[in-house]
Design a protein around this nucleic acid. Structure first.
Lengths: 204, 204
DNA sequence: CACCAACTTGCGCGCCACGCATCTATTGCG
DNA sequence: CGCAATAGATGCGTGGCGCGCAAGTTGGTG
């Protein structure tokens, strides 16, 4: 969906700068390796992105946040992706399709993922990013299942389970030599937490 | 059970200091409220804990880490708790019992939890703490189900789902006025991700 | 064409993480 | 029971970074 493209030309430029900084940060991080994250100065990132150090700070408050901005954006799209699925599609299939659309299209960058998963600091940030997806996802699930209660436990638990499955799938996919398409791993992982077709998981 | 208590006097003292710093950090954080986390100086925490600022830094590298040390310790105990359950107990019951033993015994501190869940910085740290529990938990589950493969996706997914359920349950319990025992909420949440008795969830 | 708002950038301050050197208490051994 | 080895605590100093403030610049608007 192209709804991620902002209308305002100003916002457009802003997003471009954001991605530029993020890309520069990830690239520098990859150069220094998992252990040398500390050696990546904020000044270097800003310079590589073509902005002032102060400006970098207007976008991100930490290196980790900048590096994981892509994951954060992905997570932000998940709820919307689920809503855009046809309403008559079974819940499990809709979630699976939405997840694959967001996280496996295109195939993730293996090096970047490895960098993040092998660096504790970045793990935490990526974790935050994935968790951000849970609340909108839970809301979307609640809408789809018709469960009115927004505070419904089962929807939130399911959303958390889905997010966790995606995260675990990513790690598993990365640890696999000669890996299958990420979408395959995602389907497999989601199969363990998704209710069988026809059951929305709302029992309370 | 008490194998978590080291007999070494040195380690014992170290753990005591760790808890003292953590408690002091949480107490000061509660005084300043969710928004005033930045106003909690490291010096204050160290002084309140009766140690030098430099020593505080030997234990924790950030305020957030210190405040959430209790959650981290809890998470670290989950895998061990599951192992200590009787081997003939069904998986779902064993996990539920272990979770309740670790997270609902004693009943969590409502104020502290509210503080953490309403402060983004602390949310991230608590998230890391919960996630730390996943790997040992997955290993324990794999042992219990007899699934040899350590890289087994289903066990890791289940572990992540359990951790997520605990986290969601905590938030839900906190948002509830006149709340039931936390153990009740935990059982409810876990019921949505745990396989029915007799099925280990290991299909691959 | 002129006004307004948002954004970038430079400056500067205060805090904090961390390396180095020293001192103290605990431990293990003879 | 005394001594050497060692782990941990503490002080000091330095460099990096988050962020508030104010001016310059660019895009959007009536």
């Amino acid at each position: 969906m192209d709804d991620t493209e902002p209308r305002d030309l100003r916002s457009r430029n802003r997003q471009a700068v954001r991605e530029a900084i993020s890309a520069a940060a990830l690239r520098l991080a990859l150069q220094h390796g998992p252990g040398g994250l500390r050696l990546v100065r904020v000044t270097d990132i800003a310079e590589a992105a073509g902005v002032a150090p102060r400006t970098y700070n207007n976008y991100f408050s930490s290196r980790e946040e900048a590096i994981c901005a892509f994951q954060a954006d992905q997570a932000r799209r998940l709820g919307r992706a689920l809503r855009s699925r046809p309403a008559d599609e079974p819940l499990a299939e809709a979630i699976t399709a939405a997840v694959i659309e967001v996280f496996a299209t295109p195939e993730p960058d293996r090096a970047g993922l490895a960098m993040i998963l092998s660096t504790p600091e970045l793990q935490g940030e990526a974790l935050k990013a994935f968790t951000m997806a849970e609340e909108p996802l839970a809301t979307a699930i609640a809408e789809r299942t018709g469960t009115g209660a927004r505070g419904n436990l089962s929807c939130q638990v399911l959303a958390a389970a889905v997010a966790g499955a995606v995260r675990v799938a990513g790690r598993h996919w990365l640890d696999t030599t000669n890996p299958p398409p990420f979408a395959t791993v995602l389907r497999d992982a989601l199969g363990h937490v998704l209710p069988p077709t026809g059951e929305g998981g709302a029992s309370t």
